[in-house]
Design a protein around this nucleic acid. Sequence first.
DNA 1: ATTATAAGTCAATTATACTGACTATCATTA
DNA 2: TAATGATAGTCAGTATAATTGACTTATAAT
Lengths: 148, 148
Amino acid sequence: MIQDFLYLKDKNIKDVLELIMETYLVSYSDPEPVLKRNGFGKAHHRLISLIDNNPGIKLTDILKKLKVTKQSLSRVIKELKKKNNNIIVQKKSEKDARENLLFLSEKGNALYNEIFEIQKDRILKAFKNCTTDEVISFKKVLLKIVAQ
Amino acid sequence: MIQDFLYLKDKNIKDVLELIMETYLVSYSDPEPVLKRNGFGKAHHRLISLIDNNPGIKLTDILKKLKVTKQSLSRVIKELKKKNNNIIVQKKSEKDARENLLFLSEKGNALYNEIFEIQKDRILKAFKNCTTDEVISFKKVLLKIVAQ
DNA sequence: ATTATAAGTCAATTATACTGACTATCATTA
DNA sequence: TAATGATAGTCAGTATAATTGACTTATAAT
């Protein structure tokens, strides 16, 4: 037992927590100029990304994922739905008429693509310096941290 | 070439980007009750964590890591330095008298420990369901995303 | 019929961050 | 040593983001 699970030591956990924060901050700040040019901020960015990656997602699920209140999210949705913006679209669910499902519009897709290409760049640069196994492990651990 | 690098496909990158966001949001929201009880918010949390893990860090480096302006950070520092709070301490650098290095006070250490134990819990639960290699790969990929 | 869920709204407040302008101190170097 | 750049701090004003609390409407589930 020479190593004694170094990776479970407090200092390593702290490093990982700092890296989690920094990874989020850098990878979501790269496309800020594009957002700003369109009159949007980080809150809009998070919502647009979430809807793109989960088309038809409902409000409650967004609230859980983004950890914000309904009232706070409501402002962001309103701004993205405005006539001049027209980034997202809501459709009543056929299963449950209470649910109002969220999608990106054509314009929303175009905006998100521009944002995504910038974010993708950083991730791909990292992945190309890693083995397949390392990338797979990376995603696996992220999943285990989130899904508890 | 059957797999054709599935992990480099857009959908996988999008999943990873969403996971990065969610991992940050969940792991930094777990200790919110402790922070709130002490009159602090997420901005204070980020700063306290950064100082604990980088004792003696200087302002410029914090700005780069947290991606905020000096004016915004100034408010957070001020609140953490207040007499009743007394969470962080600044000391002039001996090397370069312009630099004002940041440390946690005794009280700050105590507060951070309480916060850290909560955050550690989630990370450890995940790590204990992973192999050593997976955890090592996880950290390695985080580093490659941040350091570009 | 009652209860629970999903969504939406109004108002007030707090928290976080930004732009812009400006000062003071100290280090580097031309 | 005089000019330049780096580090930190400050003041004012504004913008953005998120919260608490109260309440309504519609629909689903029991």
